[in-house]
Design a binder for these strands. Sequence first.
DNA 1: TTGTACGCGTTATCAG
DNA 2: CTGATAACGCGTACAA
Lengths: 336, 336
Amino acid sequence: MSATIHDVAKVAQVSVRTVSRVMNSPGVVSDKTIVDVRRAMEDLGYQPSHVARSLVTKKTNTIGIVMPDIKNTFFNSWFRALEEYAGQSGYTTFLCNADEDPTKEMKFVRLLQAHRVDGVLIVPRSVEAVKYLVKNKTVTVLVDRMYHDVGTDVVSTDHYDGARRITEYLIGMGHERIGVLTGPDFMFPSAERYRGFCDAMKGSEIRIVPQFVKNCEFKEKRAYDAVDELLTGGSFPTAFFAFNSLTAIGAIKAINSHGLKIPDDISLVCYDEIPGNDIFNPKITHVRQPIVELGHRATRLLIDRIENPNRDETAKIFLKPELIMGESCMKLRRNS
Amino acid sequence: MSATIHDVAKVAQVSVRTVSRVMNSPGVVSDKTIVDVRRAMEDLGYQPSHVARSLVTKKTNTIGIVMPDIKNTFFNSWFRALEEYAGQSGYTTFLCNADEDPTKEMKFVRLLQAHRVDGVLIVPRSVEAVKYLVKNKTVTVLVDRMYHDVGTDVVSTDHYDGARRITEYLIGMGHERIGVLTGPDFMFPSAERYRGFCDAMKGSEIRIVPQFVKNCEFKEKRAYDAVDELLTGGSFPTAFFAFNSLTAIGAIKAINSHGLKIPDDISLVCYDEIPGNDIFNPKITHVRQPIVELGHRATRLLIDRIENPNRDETAKIFLKPELIMGESCMKLRRNS
DNA sequence: TTGTACGCGTTATCAG
DNA sequence: CTGATAACGCGTACAA
């Protein structure tokens, strides 16, 4: 099929070793031979086989990306940033969408191992996958979600801080009855955000209404149902805090279906940016994670680990989020 | 590093050939040996090396995806559909984002060839990349965009039909001054959509206003500037037809910045769905391409070509688009 | 500066 | 049913 290094050698009238040299260390080859070899490569449309090369060098120049939900704009944007950075560093990416399914996730992790990727960037759904990677000594960086017990590098953001600040903002606007649409408790970002929310509430001596705290599993439908149910009841929250963009969308749809207006009838803030927010009316006030940097830092760290296996202590990097002000919150009169 | 087939053979006290057999043709191996070998594999955490396997079988079970702009929701969704289908068929994908840059595109095509992918799905930005693939006998399926002269398979949609129908809809609503935000002329989808637009106009004896036809290169900023300029002038269109979601977003922003309302002051339709359209107010009337099917069909065709190299004549598949009615068009009084 | 020969981890051919 | 052994295409000691 494709031309091999032998074909090139034959055409250029040199040995394969020399052809190999013009590719990997052109410095030690005479200029004339370089020209000859290059011409031969050109003529034959030769491309060195990464697979053969990988077999001997034990390096594939690929990294595996395992993410839980590619439909989520957040992971989507993260991947774009990361892919660009990886490409510039000479790495190609294998993108795996585990679909929030631990079984699929394990399948992908095994697949990546079979492909002998040089490293893995994973937003884990279950500890098992991470443990498997660690056990097999795969260079691994956890992103966004993390587990404390396994000794891997982590790049994430300060979820506690973001949630706390946006909650304080809501409180400052006079809201005392706040509905929270959370993700699964066992997920680090959700747990941290909830902790931030609670601490902000504590700090203001407003009580959390237990019925207003809804675990929506980060899913749009769950959020829709939860908000729908709350709005149907007698006294509902004056504001909602959705823990990610999907739950925010669910909330918006439910609010719309009840004929209510944001922010006039009800306020809404969320974590992450909803798709189309820049043309949405009103723009939603939200916590913005430095997503491009999250991609770059994670990839940089991973590649660094791949290329310098000197084991420094594991890195735990938490980037600072940012509050983006929209017009989705109504200022209430303080009744104090 | 990882355990090899030899390690497994040693532990299971059989030859490597036998280990290979339990993986690839378990039928011809005695049950007892299978059990022994499986146990050995389990104990060592053995995963067969795809790279070594690929070297000898000349099959990598990977396909390359080259797309022009991953930020565009359309390609984004397309990829999701395709990746799922490919995964189920046992293929892993290399995603390459050429960023509408012919140079990057060529670089990626070469990279994919170096990785010895079994086939390539490409939304081409330039003919060169396609010609290169064809020259190197890479199994290739063009998606969305196409070139007539190169003899490759194509899976796309009927852009002419979609554009024509939505234009006729606009005309039916009484619009006679229609602004068009097109893509590059040399791109098949844009050219076809423009042809559809023109034919619809001809059919109704409304004249096309040349100043209202703006080549926006499928880019948001170009669309913003174009619409902004038109709205600043004295007499502007009563409706815009944006040729993709990005130009629609640009148009919406420009319209908003002029304090105009859709559809009260101005109507808007577009090709493809803008992100967040389901919560956008008003929902934008648009042409919906069967994007999931586009991913499945393209991948199915590609894999079929890979696995059955019997050269049937090249396939040209054009799926039918669909009109999705929103509330972004005002019905005008006919002045006839 | 250049060439020969071996090994990387599989599959597959041919005997047993 | 099972086992030596030669490829596959490349990198690299070692030799010249």
